[in-house]
Amino acid sequence: MSLYGINAYTSNYNSLYSGLYNRSKSYSTSTSDLLELAKKADMVRSPSYRKKMLEQLKNNFSDKSDTSEVGSSSNEMKLSSNAKQLSADALSLSSGGFSSWTNKSDAVKNFVDKYNSEIESLADAETTADKGRQSTLINTTQKYRSALEDIGITVGEDNKLSIDSSKLLNASERNVRSLLSGSYSYGSKIGYDMGGVSDSALDLVKKFAESYNNTLDSLEKSDSVQALEKGVSMVNTTKAFSRTLAKVGISVGSDNRLTIDEDALKKAPEETLRSLFSGGYSYANKIADKASFIGRASALEAQLSNSYTYNNKGGLDFFSQMAASLFENMI
């Protein structure tokens, strides 16, 4: 069956269920409409359809190395706990469950190192572009000289920057950030942003990536159509953000797993990190929502897989169907 065929079934499945739980839409109760719904239900619940759909959905999570037994109730429980953990990790990232994205001293050190190495490389500037860049760096820095000194960064005779550690220690985090990061700051005027992710933030991002990968591993073993569909949606969201994730040192592999380049992440610009992980519409928040859904769907699948009974045609019997729709309604 082609992918589109599966998609068509999936949309039948969705419309069937949205018909059952979408209360804002008024659905007809005429016999022909009910029969139509029942026909769709039969198609969706037929074992062969379900098998094909599961196969197709699972392709998204396969890492091709794990061939262990799939589909048992304990697998669903494991998926549920991994997904819930992922949701919790993503939420602590998006709600800023740590003191600060950046560590002040590391951030300033990264900034100064980057600046000095660029000044050094431009020392013998010959092309017009290089000369232009050199004068932008030097002139802009001179303009901000006194503000920089206030936070413990001094500008030397050779135009290089150096750090006065004691002054930097006393400087407020806010002043450092407003000077080095964000639109209209000194940093943005010379095309830099404040890097230097704090240890607590780094740990949280690492934890997030680990839970994400664990969830994908357990999705591969799940038999919950709803959890798998949401899993595909989670993977798709990650693909949509993959280029932005790459900017902060997080790569998305061909198996859809996340890999972190710690060095790159440590130096990642704070603005990009914030746009990815902080706030209600961020990448982290979207993942949190989806993971929480997967957690609930797989927990219900675990309960259902213990209680289904089948009729002599291989489909679910009437009471199991009713129970299934009631449970799925609750998701």
Partner: peptide
């Protein structure tokens, strides 16, 4: 829509 996860951006 692209960020929602409903579609594969590729």
């Amino acid at each position: 829509a692209l960020k929602s996860g409903e579609y594969d951006v590729n």
